[in-house]
Amino acid sequence: MRFLKGLLIPFVVLAIWYTGSKSGIWNSFILPSPVQTFETGQYLITSGILLKHVLISLYRVFAGFALAFLLAFPLGIILGMKRQLIDYFELIIEFVRHVPPLATVPMLILWFGIGEISKLVVIVLASFFPIFLNTLDGVLRCDEHLLEVGESFGFAARDRFKYIIFPATFPYILMGMRLGLGYSWRALIGAEIIAATAGIGYMILDAELLSRPDIMIVGILTIGILGTLIDFVFFRITNVFVIWKEGEKTQNGWG
């Protein structure tokens, strides 16, 4: 039922779009009709062109995301455990966090060239912070009372981490990963501005050169739909692990 309610507004938009195109309010060079867009989409799918671009983009997103995770997760844990180190990192992290990844693209091209590395770096920059900050936050929020329970039973530092800090932080890590995945997906177009020859971002930019708004729309729809799907799947899979966070589950959107 909730899903159907969610479809109402897209349906209304589609109806307006269709009526507007049909009655010739919009020039089809600026906004092609839904029928034309659908046919283009059909062609891009059946010819395998869309799939090729999607696979390349997915590869970039997941590779960048994985790299970001490998950097952000340990750093978040270490800074959370050794709070005295936070003072050294706080300023630089705040600074970098406020620089949009896109702003670094010209520098990245200068340093890393126009190959895959620059594209991955843009995605890493985008998804690093949600993972890092959520992990750090989770460790810092770990209930002192629960840590005392471990201490009173004589847990060694390693066991306190394994049996208390890590499980307590786990939902925060997953939330950070979920946001990070979303951010990497959103950074994709920025990354594919850099002299790409394939990928959804490239497909959209290429369509601009060819004045093909129908392809642009198919590209935008693909990004949105895939992003939503990935988030949904990620949320469903990870929610199994945080069953105890029942109270918060419904607030996360996919309840």
Partner: peptide
């Protein structure tokens, strides 16, 4: 030494 606190302090997970 086993201690029981004012609050249950159970591990929610």
């Amino acid at each position: 030494i086993g201690i029981m606190f004012q609050e249950p302090r159970l591990m929610p997970w």
